[in-house]
Each structure stands twice: as structure tokens, then as C-alpha cells.
């Protein structure tokens, strides 16, 4: 299931990534079952590109982001950053890698320490990596605050003095100050109001253009992902079910789940009347995922083969990967 060959144009390559979380139970706290949060996910991201990952709660998109950064150890698979295996890196190599791979979290209220001024939060990474003198660090913090649209004097303020949108800018500044190559953005605008969300999305776009950043952009909101991504991967129950360029995916989705997901989104235009595909039931439990294709119990195209055979993640059209026996444009 190799999605792409190792070439230098890929900043990040993820191969067959797995993460099983144990469920402990009983008197001895033995592992009684496993949550298969990620069950063989592969993708790659080119330099300067934004790959969007979408899917509903529990599909494994957040786990993907965290496992790629090795914030949680994976159960199997490979993550190559500029050709180097992140999962096998030593502690020393990891320190260097971490500078290059940063993350912006969803909740700007929970991800900043309320007891220290935001400038100190932003400088913390520099300090840990022994970059610059205290004076130089201060200059860098000032610069990065201006870069994200805040005032350098804001560095002495505490998180509670900022609004949600400003805090998310601080979260971005904290990632940016390390001069990373890759930023994992995990639902960075989900907690924000639309008018503020637009400000932050535009900021992320500008930063990418100016600094050549690469983003792994994780979100549940398809419209946001469509807006910001060059390519998009759709996840369902620990698997990637479709991966393609943005235009191809949104114009010509091939997986029935992607189609249902798109049709389910209410559009802010009352004149549009669409044929909505309403999926029945809920997402099944990742502890006991359905046999064969994981989507088959909710799929209106499902046949017998879908119950038994897990469809391969194949390139149906150039650059358009789908895992479905009956994929059609």
C-alpha cells in the first residue's frame, strides 16, 4: 500500500501508520480490548503544500496528527520527515526534528499556561532548544507577535487578557517562533466565531505564502478544509477512505462516504435544494470495527463483497486514491 515513492519533494511521508489504544479492565488491569484509532493510514505531503484531513469524531484524524509528531507512540508503521524515520529517531535526533515540526491546538483557552505571560510561553521552545541569548529571544518573540498580527507589547500580558481569536494567534506564534518546516494544525479554527475564523484562516494562508510552510490541517469542517487545502484526505473509523487533490475531491468525490459527508453540509443559501444523502445510524465503535469495508453497514451501495473484503486503497485516477469496491465518479 505504498502511496508514493520516496522523493525529495515530499517533506513528510506516512506509511501504514497504526495506533491501538488498550482498554484496561478487570482486577489486574489487563488489556481486555483495543481501540483501533488508526489502522493503516498512508499519505505524503509535499513541501509548501497543505494537506487537509477531514472526518467525523473518532475517525482518527487527531491521532494521526499526534502520532506523526510522536507525541503519542504509534503501534506500527513509518513516518518519514525529509527521509528520516521519526519513529526510530534517538532522543537527540528527536530534539532537532521537533524544532521542524510544530503543532497548533484546537482550544486556545486550554493550550496556554494561564500563569505565565504569553511572551514567556512563546519563548519556551527557544529556551529549551538553547537558541539565542535571552535578549535575542525577546526580539524573536516581538517579531513573531507582529507577524501574527498582534502587538509586540502584548508579550507581557497573560492569556486571560486576550480573546479567543487572539489566543489562537498566540498559539500560531508559539509554533512559528521555532521556524518549523511543518505545522500540524489540529482544528485550529473550530472554537472560533466565523468572522474571527476567517481572520485566522487568512493568516495561515499568508504565513504559508511568505515562509513556505507545509501544513497538515486537521478539521471536521469540510468547507474550511476545502478553503485552505491543496489536497484532502477523508478518514473514516481509523482508515483513509479517499485522498485526492482538492478540486478533484470536491468536484468528483468517488467514495460514498465522502459523497454523503458533502451532501450533509447545510449551505448558507436557501435557494439551493439538493438531494441529500442521509446516512443511517451512527459511526460504529472502533473497538469492534465492522468486517470488510468499515463503512458497509451505513453504505447504500454495499453488496456482499463489502461485508467480507476490505477494499484496497487504490489509485483509481491519477492522484486520486479511494478505498471502495464500487468507487465511481
Amino acid at each position: 500500500m505504498t502511496v508514493s515513492n520516496s522523493t525529495s519533494e515530499h517533506l513528510l511521508e506516512v506509511r501504514n501508520l497504526k495506533k491501538y489504544f488498550p482498554i484496561k479492565g478487570g482486577l489486574m488491569r489487563r488489556t481486555v480490548a483495543e481501540v483501533k484509532a488508526l489502522d493503516g493510514v498512508s499519505f505524503s505531503i509535499k513541501k509548501g503544500e497543505t494537506l487537509g484531513l477531514v472526518g467525523e469524531s473518532g475517525c482518527g484524524k487527531t491521532t494521526t496528527g499526534r502520532t506523526v509528531l510522536r507525541l503519542i507512540p504509534p503501534s506500527g508503521g513509518q513516518v518519514l520527515f525529509e527521509g528520516q524515520d521519526v519513529l526510530k529517531a534517538s532522543a537527540g535526533q528527536m530534539r532537532v526534528l521537533r524544532r521542524n515540526m510544530q503543532i497548533v491546538f484546537q482550544d486556545p483557552y486550554a493550550s496556554l499556561n494561564p500563569r505565565i505571560p504569553v511572551g514567556q510561553s512563546i519563548a519556551e521552545g527557544l529556551k529549551i532548544h538553547n537558541i539565542g541569548t535571552p535578549k535575542e529571544r525577546l526580539d524573536q518573540v516581538a517579531q513573531v507577535l507582529e507577524r501574527v498580527g498582534l502587538n509586540s507589547s502584548h508579550m507581557r500580558r497573560f492569556p486571560h487578557e486576550f480573546s479567543g481569536g487572539q489566543r489562537q494567534r498566540i498559539g500560531i506564534a508559539r509554533a512559528l517562533v521555532m521556524q518549523p518546516k511543518l505545522i500540524v494544525c489540529d482544528e485550529p479554527v473550530s472554537a472560533l466565531d466565523v468572522s474571527i475564523q476567517a481572520q485566522v484562516l487568512n493568516l495561515l494562508n499568508d504565513l504559508q505564502k511568505d515562509l513556505g510552510l507545509t501544513y497538515l490541517f486537521i478539521a471536521h469542517n469540510l468547507s474550511v478544509v476545502e478553503h485552505i487545502s491543496n489536497r484532502v484526505g477523508v478518514m473514516y473509523l481509523g482508515r483513509m477512505v479517499e485522498l485526492s487533490s482538492r478540486d478533484q475531491l470536491f468536484r468528483k468525490p468517488m467514495h460514498p462516504y465522502t459523497k454523503a459527508l458533502m451532501s450533509a453540509i447545510p449551505l448558507p443559501d436557501p435557494t439551493i435544494k439538493r438531494d441529500r444523502i442521509i446516512l443511517e445510524g451512527d459511526v460504529p465503535s472502533p473497538v469492534n470495527p465492522p468486517s470488510g469495508c468499515r463503512f458497509h453497514p451505513r453504505c447504500w451501495l454495499a453488496q456482499d463483497i463489502c461485508k467480507h473484503d476490505d477494499p484496497a486503497f487504490e489509485e483509481k485516477e491519477p492522484g486520486h486514491f479511494v478505498a471502495c469496491h464500487f468507487a465511481q465518479g
Binding site: V194, S195, Q197, A198, Q199, L201, N202, N205, L222, S223, V224, E226, H227, R246, F250, M262, I265, L267, P268, D269
Partner: peptide
């Protein structure tokens, strides 16, 4: 402003309007 700053599926703009 509210309507212009909402990204709409199938209607990609380079830059979102902001308030």
C-alpha cells in the same frame, strides 16, 4: 460580513472576507 466570511463548500475564494 458574516455571510462573506463563511467559507462555502464548492465555492473557493483566495481570501476570505473578514470583519
Amino acid at each position: 460580513g458574516l455571510i462573506a466570511s463563511t467559507p462555502v463548500l464548492g465555492n473557493v475564494r483566495d481570501e476570505l472576507e473578514t470583519i
